[in-house]
Computed example of a mutant assay.
Amino acid sequence: MENASKNAHVQASASKTIAGVYGWMSFGVLISALMGLVLVQTQIIQALGNFYYGVIIAQLGVVLVMSFAAEKMSAAALKGMFLFYAVLTGFTFAILMLIYPIGNFIALFAMAAMGFAALAVFGAVTKKNLGFMRTFLIMGVFMILGANIVNIFIHSPILRSFTGWAGILVFSGLTAYDSQRIREGAYELALHDAGDTQAIRKFMIFGALTMYLNFINLFISLLKVFGGNRD
């Protein structure tokens, strides 16, 4: 009876943590989308276009700070940085809204959301250990990053299509893999650190950032392949 009660408590605590991860992730996506709409509708994006690479560097900086300085930061500070990152990504959303037909943008956003949800559920419920994919997925991320950097200079449609298809595969795999890691981490916290609210809050934010990045990159990859171009 006591074991059953403990298991139920662990299950409830882990489920609450997982819900927090996806709640923050969804909130971040919402902020980015709304910021993108504001920038496009007010035409501010045209004035800020010259700062595109500066925003990209700022985004990378925020992720690096969150990754390497987390131990010294409070959960509240991490939440603030996550929300700041979501605002910065709104700039990227605005650029994409200008590049691709809005109908395609909305349709592919919905497709990315449905695919992401299905992959996240699969990763959370499957009994198969997805850890075997880790090395290949990390290699894939670096390959896509390198190809994107090269394509900044050569503007190759073939390379662009390649990074799109590769991104769909890699970030689909990462979504399932990271979903499984989040489930396992949430249960580990529920078993050993249930009273450490700082640790749980930090876990939620890092999990949210991880899944947020997977979703955004999956969406951008779909746009590269199926988005078309404005006339």
Results as ranks from 00 to 15, higher is better:
residue 148 N to M: 07
residue 172 S to F: 11
residue 118 A to D: 10
residue 206 F to I: 00
residue 216 I to G: 00
residue 154 I to L: 06
residue 191 L to K: 14
residue 170 V to Y: 13
residue 83 L to Q: 02
residue 110 A to T: 11
residue 58 A to F: 15
residue 113 A to G: 10
residue 116 F to A: 06
residue 214 N to F: 04
residue 121 V to Y: 15
residue 52 Y to D: 01
residue 20 G to T: 07
residue 135 T to H: 12
residue 67 S to H: 15
residue 200 I to D: 03
residue 176 A to C: 09
residue 46 Q to S: 13
residue 68 F to C: 06
residue 16 K to Y: 10
residue 134 R to E: 12
residue 120 A to D: 08
residue 107 A to S: 11
residue 61 G to N: 06
residue 74 S to A: 00
residue 117 A to D: 06
residue 134 R to G: 01
residue 172 S to M: 15
residue 20 G to R: 04
residue 41 Q to S: 06
residue 146 G to W: 13
residue 56 I to S: 05
residue 93 F to C: 01
residue 135 T to E: 12
residue 155 H to L: 02
residue 159 L to S: 10
residue 164 G to A: 06
residue 230 R to E: 02
residue 145 L to Y: 08
residue 196 D to M: 05
residue 196 D to L: 08
residue 179 S to M: 13
residue 226 F to Q: 08
residue 41 Q to K: 08
residue 122 F to Y: 15
residue 191 L to G: 04
residue 131 G to C: 04
residue 212 Y to N: 03
residue 3 N to T: 08
residue 224 K to F: 12
residue 212 Y to W: 11
residue 18 I to Q: 10
residue 19 A to F: 11
residue 35 M to D: 06
residue 118 A to T: 12
residue 188 E to I: 01
residue 101 P to L: 05
residue 171 F to D: 01
residue 28 G to Y: 03
residue 125 V to D: 00
residue 86 A to Q: 00
residue 104 N to H: 12
residue 6 K to R: 13
residue 209 L to Y: 01
residue 61 G to C: 05
residue 114 M to F: 14
residue 215 F to H: 02
residue 171 F to W: 12
residue 196 D to S: 08
residue 135 T to K: 15
residue 106 I to S: 10
residue 12 A to F: 12
residue 20 G to F: 05
residue 68 F to W: 12
residue 53 Y to L: 13
residue 113 A to W: 10
residue 203 F to W: 06
residue 138 I to Q: 00
residue 74 S to N: 03
residue 9 H to M: 14
residue 56 I to G: 03
residue 227 G to S: 05
residue 67 S to P: 10
residue 45 I to E: 01
residue 38 V to K: 13
residue 199 A to I: 03
residue 9 H to V: 11
residue 68 F to S: 07
residue 134 R to N: 09
residue 144 I to Y: 09
residue 88 L to A: 05
residue 74 S to E: 03
residue 226 F to G: 04
residue 3 N to Q: 08
residue 22 Y to E: 02
residue 153 F to D: 10
residue 178 D to R: 09
residue 93 F to A: 02
residue 164 G to T: 08
residue 13 S to N: 13
residue 43 Q to H: 15
residue 28 G to A: 05
residue 125 V to N: 00
residue 197 T to K: 12
residue 168 I to H: 10
residue 146 G to T: 09
residue 180 Q to I: 06
residue 80 G to T: 05
residue 117 A to M: 11
residue 168 I to S: 07
residue 144 I to H: 09
residue 96 L to W: 14
residue 93 F to M: 13
residue 145 L to D: 01
residue 213 L to S: 08
residue 198 Q to P: 03
residue 18 I to Y: 14
residue 79 K to T: 11
residue 147 A to H: 06
residue 71 E to G: 13
residue 212 Y to A: 04
residue 215 F to N: 01
residue 146 G to F: 09
residue 19 A to S: 12
residue 181 R to V: 09
residue 30 L to F: 13
residue 15 S to G: 03
residue 183 R to T: 11
residue 159 L to V: 15
residue 162 F to Y: 15
residue 37 L to K: 10
residue 136 F to V: 07
residue 140 G to Y: 00
residue 216 I to S: 00
residue 118 A to P: 08
residue 97 M to H: 06
residue 168 I to Y: 11
residue 106 I to Y: 13
residue 196 D to G: 05
residue 16 K to E: 07
residue 109 F to D: 06
residue 121 V to L: 15
residue 180 Q to R: 07
residue 220 I to Y: 02
residue 92 T to N: 14
residue 62 V to M: 02
residue 5 S to E: 12
residue 136 F to A: 14
residue 217 N to R: 02
residue 182 I to M: 15
residue 117 A to C: 05
